[in-house]
């Protein structure tokens, strides 16, 4: 699956580019699902593939749509390669690795928006500006959405509107996005006319 083209949207909605190799003392890759393909393309462009892999640490987890390219990721032969079963399971290790990253470390984040948002948040907590983190979207467009009412986050939202997995309110999904929360905003769709909930549409896959 190649790079996703998202429709034109508002200015808080993240945009993604293509991963490009940059000179660095260390290369930290955080990927899920089809992000493995973006990593493959990145390595194909690297002027010194062996050198880059020798200084590379990959954290990988299958995508929310079930895509698991672990064999491909292992096959790259990076200095360190780690597979987490889920994103939440990856976060403790990611947090430690990021907090110990030295100056000159390059960050490459690729895969779904939920994975990229949460990885970016961990990296930004170290004080690194988000502009220094390369991100490339691949794979599923399922969304991570925060309910503005109860504050609970629903993962892998496909339908719009959908029922909040915490409070049960019917939420419509905005493009308004918070990097601090790593989520899009969900707002009650029938607040003004309780019970009038339009039919759900599969907007994200």
């Amino acid at each position: 699956m190649s790079k996703t083209i998202f429709p034109q949207s508002i200015k808080s909605r993240p945009v993604y580019a293509t991963l490009e190799p940059r000179p660095g003392k260390a290369h930290l890759v955080i990927a899920d699902g089809e992000g493995a393909d973006a990593l493959g393309d990145l390595l194909d462009k690297a002027p010194d593939r062996a050198g880059m892999l020798g200084a590379m640490h990959i954290l990988y987890t299958p995508g929310p749509n079930g895509t698991d390219l672990w064999a491909k990721v292992q096959g790259f032969g990076a200095a360190q390669t780690y597979r987490a079963p889920t994103i939440p399971a990856m976060l403790p290790r990611l947090s430690k690795v990021v907090s110990e990253a030295h100056m000159g470390t390059q960050f490459y984040v690729t895969g779904t928006e939920g994975l990229m948002g949460q990885a970016e948040r961990e990296i930004m907590m170290t004080g690194l500006p988000f502009g220094a983190i390369q991100k490339e979207h691949r794979g599923s467009t399922l969304r991570r959405v925060q309910c503005v009412h109860c504050k609970g986050i629903t993962e892998n939202v496909a339908l719009d509107p959908f029922a909040c997995s915490h409070c049960g309110l019917h939420l419509f999904v905005r493009d308004h996005y918070s990097r601090r929360i790593a989520a899009f905003q969900g707002v009650n769709i029938d607040a003004e006319d309780p019970g009038l909930v339009p039919a759900a549409v599969e907007r994200f896959k």
Partner: peptide, 21 residues
Amino acid sequence: SLDFDVGMNFMEWHAPVPLAH
């Protein structure tokens, strides 16, 4: 929502406003 928008830059927190951009 401050809780959602805190930490955003000027363009981001105004993103939902129509026409003005």
